Computed example of a mutant assay.
Amino acid sequence: MNKAILSEKYPQFATKLREYGYEVIPSETIPCNMPYERDHADLQCLILDHTAFVLSCCERIIDALSCDYRLIPCGDRFTGKYPDNTCLSAVQCGSKLIGRIASLDEKVKEYCRIHGIKLINVNQGYAKCSCVPIADNAIITADNGIVNTLRNTDIDVLPIGKGSIQLEGAEYGFLGGASGYDRDNKTVYFCGNINHHPDSKQIKSFCESYGTNVVSLSDNDLTDIGGIIFC
């Protein structure tokens, strides 16, 4: 993975990722979405293995990934309103995909059926934004519903407190939206300084227990930018 899809609303994060050697792919701006999520990458693209599911209106992302991935345009029911806007908001943990099944794009669900990926249903439509994967079987989340659901699986979960994440135009954001996990490098990059989070010690310790590196992309407070998708 040497590419990163993310919003450039806060260019300091893209600049820092370029310094780490990543080619940055700017996310699109989708006018029908809520103002605070119009450029959120985690609502525009979902990558499963070597297949990229991308909203059909996100031509820049489709073009950027077309050489490296099998591209599947999605969003037949996309309206920009919840929960239709979360049709690609899911998080993969090994052979499992966590998301609100009723909201997921039919092409994603078909792919999972064909390739033996187990769908784990949660009530939270913004599943990707709500979760920070730090290994194939471990995530961090502040969503109690997701925590309770995953207790019945082999996925290890670190529950954290809600809030402490900036999201312009909303009361608060989510840690998944303020981060991205590069599986190849076993590194979680945070959009801001993870030490500013009240649960930073537990977060860093949890990542360390799985051999996952933690990188803060700035010294400012954590900011939900719609996540970073490494590809």
Rank of each mutant, 00 (worst) to 15 (best):
K162F: 00
I117H: 12
G75E: 07
T153N: 06
C191D: 08
T187P: 01
T223V: 13
C67N: 04
L175K: 07
D76H: 03
C32G: 00
I120P: 13
F78Q: 00
E59V: 11
R18D: 05
H197E: 08
C112K: 06
S7M: 00
V91I: 15
A127S: 13
R151N: 14
S164C: 15
N85D: 15
K9E: 12
N2I: 01
L150T: 13
F190D: 05
C191T: 13
N33D: 14
T223I: 15
Y69C: 10
A142M: 07
S27L: 13
S216R: 04
L65E: 08
I228K: 05
I47C: 01
S200N: 14
A142L: 10
S130H: 12
L88M: 10
I140D: 11
P73H: 10
I98F: 01
N152E: 15
K118M: 12
E19F: 07
D156G: 00
L222H: 10
T223M: 14
G226K: 05
F13K: 07
V147M: 03
D143V: 08
V147W: 05
V24D: 03
C74I: 00
F230K: 04
D39L: 08
T223E: 15
G169F: 10
R183Y: 01
L175Y: 12
I72H: 06
L43T: 13
T223R: 12
Y126N: 12
C57E: 14
V54P: 12
K16T: 14
E171N: 10
K107T: 05
K107I: 00
Y22P: 00
Q202W: 07
D63I: 11
N85E: 14
D219R: 15
P26F: 07
P133W: 02
L17T: 03
F78L: 08
G145V: 11
Q166D: 11
N220W: 00
L46H: 04
A90Q: 00
Y172E: 07
K109D: 03
T15R: 13
C45D: 11
G116F: 02
I62P: 06
V214G: 02
L55K: 05
C45P: 09
C87T: 01
I225S: 07
I117Y: 10
F230G: 01
S209K: 12
R77P: 00
A52D: 06
D143Y: 07
E171S: 15
D49S: 08
S209D: 07
K109I: 15
H197A: 10
C87W: 09
C231M: 01
Q92F: 00
G80N: 02
S205Q: 13
L97Q: 01
T86S: 12
K118V: 15
Q44G: 06
L167K: 15
G173Q: 13
Q92E: 02
S56K: 06
Y126G: 10
Q12E: 14
S56W: 01
G163H: 10
G80I: 09
T79F: 02
G226R: 03
P83N: 08
I225E: 04
T149G: 00
C87H: 03
I101L: 03
T212K: 04
C129V: 05
S218G: 10
C57V: 11
R100V: 02
H50W: 01
G211Q: 09
T15H: 05
A178L: 04
Q44I: 14
G176N: 05
A14M: 02
L175D: 08
D63W: 02
V188H: 04
N123S: 15
G145M: 13
Y126D: 04
G173N: 14
G163D: 05
